[in-house]
Every structure is written in structure tokens, then in C-alpha cells.
Design a protein around this nucleic acid. Structure first.
Lengths: 363, 363
DNA sequence: CTGTTAGCGCCTTCAA
DNA sequence: TTGAAGGCGCTAACAG
């Protein structure tokens, strides 16, 4: 009895204390008090989990309006099991491919009523690790990630406990994680075959580090195409900066076996190589035929328009996010994750030497 | 007495209950129990707010290691005043300018030990509003936003209560909000003057809606330049799609007063107009001189290389985020917000008719 | 249909 | 230097 009296007393002094604090946000019990009901009635009214009489509903609603009450999502997340938040990790944003992926992931998440905590790793596995921990401490319900330098990434099941994880663009060693990738090898192989069909015998490959999954996969496609045609490889990994790339391009062009075509393996390398060719005054496609992985706005307006392998960026993000929400809904961690491989599209423009445009989908 | 006994009893049964639940994350009291100390000692050890004896520190540390304990950031945020989270709202991500802004905002936030909740409004003020509410419910410590269609945006002080807000790229009507923008008018004016210096008398302006702050500000710069030179305006607002833009460009070129130069007011309009010119077979800069607002990768490789007004995208995001953390640290909401205007840079390439490259900074 | 109780994990306050 | 008590706002579980 005395206990319950205590509670009542508290209930009575609470409002004045509240009013004392100028800016305290109204809480559910403020609403309950004003409406003359218990907090659970307010809670139920908000969640709709259990019916409340339409008359009380009215009163609660007006109390909410009057106080301009908003539920404290932090308290909910803390109390319950779900934070309604997912984490999103990508290397960086200035690659339009990554930016598009982010756009679709956030869109899907918001459609599910979720918030997205985003972070950029800059390909730094240590920063990635720190940020993953931060996300886990915030109890995100799941994580979508493009792992930094895939093999070295510390993104593995044990780190996440029972929090679902979907990686995309690059898989990871851990087979229990879901992964969404594209036909990197197939796409690269096909476009190099196309260059071969144009009659090229000496085709160079330019890329960033081979320790990046996508770059390596594309290199393997390039290699396969050359091997099948009995041609010799000529690959350079190390387009880490404009200067390095310029040096590499220069030495290739001055070398004894000057390539007649070049294939660049992602947007960044493409930019560096194009700049280098521009600097050196090389004319495409006559001096050198050109094709690259990753489409971008205005590839159409380059001089000449560029032949590319296009990835469905938004689609990749959408599929990865959907997969994650699937996992979250089911609540179980699979023994073996899904491995989804999306098709790419070859877009023929002029830089390869084609006179006519065209496109082919590679599954 | 009986109360305290109750608590002790609870303390004793808790571990077994815990061990019963397979996957419960260890809590601070688990650590405390294992280390044979009170929870406050663990708390103090973690925060470093009060010294603990090095011997207990040892024990606590090993307990933490053994249990692989991570503090529950959700509980902290709930309990305390700070969520160590900021909200970030942008229209969309496929504009590289916006993507770069996001990159720098998240980088700055992470440097401050903060997480970033990101959302895209797609220029939809309703979605923007909903997402702001979600962020507020999550008790973000502050918000950085590019408001959707600035005048109509519902981003105003009352909505946010005492949560600090910094808008960037576009200001809002509310003068109490901090705003970071660039020299839109000055930059546009200068580049149009440059076209005039090339001898052009009929210069067209192409843009999205004038209800977008940046577009309007750039238009005003364009207008000023023409007025000062005694020339006639020729503006089109409505580059909302490729089709609309193509139609507009076509009719301009067929009209009685065909422009000899065109200025496009952002990346999107630029892309549409370039595509239209390409489709119609217009040659730059001879048939038509060209200049645009917003630089982008590979503007260098367009045919011809494009003359642009470049905004310091990363810098804008960095300044906006820093301003926000300033506000968060001070904890007071200003009567009148800061209005920071950053310079832009004119980058002369070939599309304007220049033979030589060059650049000028406009403050 | 509605209310009461209890406690999520942490840290502030008070007491030793 | 350390510990105990209490409560942040919410909702599951149990009464009525």
C-alpha cells in the first residue's frame, strides 16, 4: 500500500518538475496523465497492437497533439529488440558507382521504416573495424557493406555475433555471409574478346591493386580472353595516382611492344588513364582503342564516346538491402550465405573502334 | 533491509538466468560480477572519469576481455543527453557534387566519434519531413541538411526544438539556422561575362526549376552579366528530363534568334543539354559555345573539354559539419545563424572558345 | 478494454 | 577509491 502511495505521489509531483525544466521533451506518461489514462493505453494506441476504445483514443490523440509528443525511439530501441537501424559501409563516395549503391540502399531501408548509419572506410580495414564496432554498440539490426580490400577485411561472422550481414560488390572469405556481386570476369572477358575481334593483338590491362576482388576478377576475364586467342598478357596494377598511371602509360607506349588497345578495370583507373592519354596526346581509337569497366554519366560525351561494361549499380544496392531485410525478418543466421551474381551489360560506343553503337547483356 | 536483500538475491540469480539465454550480450553487471566489483567501478574504468586503483583496473579489464564485453551505446544514449549521432539529409546521391559533400560530412563526424544517419529526400519535402521526424525521435544531436526545394522545405527551427541544424548548398528562409553556400551568383555572372568577352551576344540559360535556390541564384548572376552588357535574356527553366530538354534546345536552335552560346546551371541540366546537343549534331564551341556550373570528373575529356564553375564540394561539407559540431559543443541555439559563403573557381577549358586553359577564383 | 508492475543497461547522486 | 540506489522512457507480462 505504501508503495503504491509512493507512486501516486511521484505521479503528482512529476508534472511540476517537468514544467520546471524548460525544454524537456514530453514523455508518454505526460501524455497519459493529460489524457487521464495509463501509459500502456498510450503505448497501445501508438502501436495499434491492441484495440483501445475510440473515445479514449480521441483523448490520447488530443493529448499527443497538445503536448506535441513524439515517441522516444531511443527508449524503444533500448527496451525492445529492434533498433530499426542498419549500418552501411562503403569505401568512399566519390566513385559514382558506390554513390548509386548507397542511394538505393538508403531508399530501401527507409521504405522499411529503417534508418541508415553510413560510414566510409577509405579502404582502410582498421577504420572499417572501428566503425563496425561502433555500429554494433549501437545495436544496428543488420549491416550492408562493401568490405575494404576484401581479403584483409575483418568483416567476418564472429565479429558480428548474430547480427546479419550482407556484403556486396566484393565477397569475403567467410562463406556464411550473403554476398551480391556482378559478372566481373564474364563482362571483362567479353569486352576484351570484342577488342580482339577488332583485330587487336596487343591489349593492355590497367588497374588498381589486384588485392581488390573486382579488379582481380576482371583481370582474370581479361586473361582468359587473351589465352583463348593465344595472345600475350600485358597488365599493370598500380594506378594509385595520376602520376603513377602517367608513368606506366608512358612506358607502355614507348616500349618495344606498344599496345594497340587498352582495357581499364574501374572508374578510378579509367580517369587516370584517360588523363594520361590526354596529356600524351594519344588519339582514340586510332592510336589506341579503349574500353573500360564501369559506366558513368557523360562517358557518352568523351572524345570519343567510351565503350564500357556497365554494372547495375542501383540494382546491386537494392538486392543487397532486400536480402538483409529478409534476414532481419527471419531472424536466423544461415550456415551458408546466398551468393547472388548479377549480370552486366556491354555498351559499345566508339572508343573500341566500333562505327555503330550496341549493347549486350552478360549473365 | 528486506529491499537490499532482494537486490542481492537478484544479483545472485541473474548470472544463471543470463547463461540460460544463449546469445544475450554481456552487460556491465556481468563484467562487474566477474571482476568482483560494483558496476560503477566498471563504468568509471571505461569512462576514465574517476580513477580506479590499478589493481581493480586489471581485474575489470580481464573480465571485459573474457566476456568480450562492449558497452551498449543505446543504453548510454538513452540514459544520457548525447546520442553521438547526427542526421544528414540530401536530395540524392547520383549527383557527384552531393556525394562529395556526404563524404566529407561523414568523415568529419567520424573524426568526432559520431555516427551519421543519412537519408535522401529526392527533393520531396514530405519525405524530408518524415525523415527529419524519424531522426528527431532517435534524438540525433544535430542535423546537417540540403533542404528540398528550399522555399517549400519544412526545415525550420520550431520543428527541431533545441536540436542544432546547419543547412548547406541552399539556405532556408529561417534566419536562425546556420547556412553554408557558395558564390552562386558571382560565379555565374563571371562565367557569362567571359562568354560575352568571347563576343557572344545571344547567350541562353538552361536550368531546372527556378524554385531551387542555387538555380535561381545562378540565373541572377547570368541576368546581371547580360544587363550590364545591354544584352537580352534567353532563359529556360524546365530541364526536368531528357525529353523536355531536347525539345527546348531544339526550339531554341530553330528559333529566329538562335543563341551562339549556352550556360547550364547544374550537373543534371548539363548532362541533358549535352545529350541534346550531341543528338542534334551541334559542334562546340563553333556552332555553340558552352559553359556550365559544377565541375565533374572527366569534364576534361568531353569533346571539347568543358569550361565550368567549380564548387569546393568537399570543403562545403566539411565546413557545414564543423559548424554543427561547434553548435553541439556550445549547446546554445543562436538568435541569428551564421551565413558562410565559400568562393567558387572558374575553370576555362575549350568549350567556351578559349584556346588556352586557365582558372580564376571568385570570392 | 485498461491499468500495474517490473526491468532493459547505463550513469548521476549520494553515502561510505 | 568504491558501492548502492534510483530512474531515464518504454513495453511485455500479468492482472483486473
Amino acid at each position: 500500500m505504501s508503495e503504491s502511495k509512493d507512486h501516486l505521489a511521484q505521479g503528482k509531483i512529476a508534472p511540476s518538475r517537468r514544467n520546471g525544466r524548460v525544454s524537456a521533451k514530453p514523455t508518454m506518461s505526460d501524455v497519459a496523465r493529460l489524457a487521464g489514462v495509463g501509459t500502456m493505453t498510450v503505448s497501445r494506441f501508438l502501436s495499434g497492437s491492441v484495440a483501445v476504445s475510440s473515445e479514449t483514443a480521441q483523448r490520447v490523440q488530443s493529448a499527443i497533439n497538445e503536448l506535441n509528443y513524439r515517441p522516444n525511439e531511443l527508449a524503444r530501441a533500448f527496451r525492445g529488440q529492434r533498433s530499426r537501424t542498419i549500418g552501411l559501409i562503403i569505401p568512399y563516395l566519390y566513385d559514382p558507382f558506390f554513390a548509386n549503391c548507397v542511394h538505393s540502399v538508403t531508399t530501401v531501408a527507409n521504405e522499411h521504416g529503417y534508418s541508415v548509419i553510413i560510414t566510409t572506410s577509405n579502404e582502410d580495414t582498421e577504420k572499417e573495424f572501428v566503425e563496425v564496432e561502433r555500429m554494433l554498440e549501437r545495436h544496428v539490426d543488420g549491416v550492408v557493406a562493401i568490405p575494404a580490400r576484401f581479403n584483409e577485411s575483418r568483416i567476418t561472422r564472429p565479429l558480428f555475433g548474430k547480427t546479419p550481414v550482407v556484403v556486396f560488390d566484393r565477397p569475403v572469405a567467410d562463406p556464411t555471409l550473403d554476398a551480391v556481386t556482378v559478372q566481373n570476369t564474364g563482362g571483362a572477358r567479353r569486352i576484351v574478346e570484342h577488342l580482339i575481334e577488332h583485330g587487336h593483338k596487343r591489349i593492355a590491362f590497367m588497374g588498381l591493386s589486384r588485392s581488390l576482388f573486382t579488379i582481380n576478377a576482371r583481370f582474370l576475364g581479361y586473361r582468359k580472353a587473351l589465352q583463348d586467342a593465344g595472345l600475350e598478357e600485358d597488365a599493370f596494377f598500380g594506378c594509385d595516382s595520376q602520376e603513377d598511371t602517367l608513368r606506366a602509360v608512358e612506358s607502355k607506349l614507348r616500349g618495344p611492344k606498344t599496345p594497340t588497345a587498352v582495357f581499364t578495370s574501374n572508374t578510378l583507373a579509367t580517369r587516370y588513364v584517360l588523363t594520361a592519354l590526354f596529356t600524351l596526346g594519344v588519339k582514340m581509337p586510332n592510336d589506341l582503342a579503349f574500353a573500360c569497366f564501369d559506366d558513368f554519366d557523360l562517358a557518352e560525351f568523351c572524345s570519343p564516346p567510351l565503350t564500357v561494361v556497365r554494372q547495375p549499380a542501383q540494382e546491386i544496392g537494392r538486392v543487397a538491402a532486400s536480402l538483409l531485410f529478409d534476414r532481419i525478418a527471419r531472424g536466423e543466421i544461415p550456415k551458408t550465405g546466398n551468393r547472388i551474381v548479377l549480370p552486366v551489360e556491354i555498351v559499345l560506343r566508339r572508343s573500341c573502334g566500333c562505327k555503330h553503337r550496341g549493347s549486350v547483356v552478360i549473365h
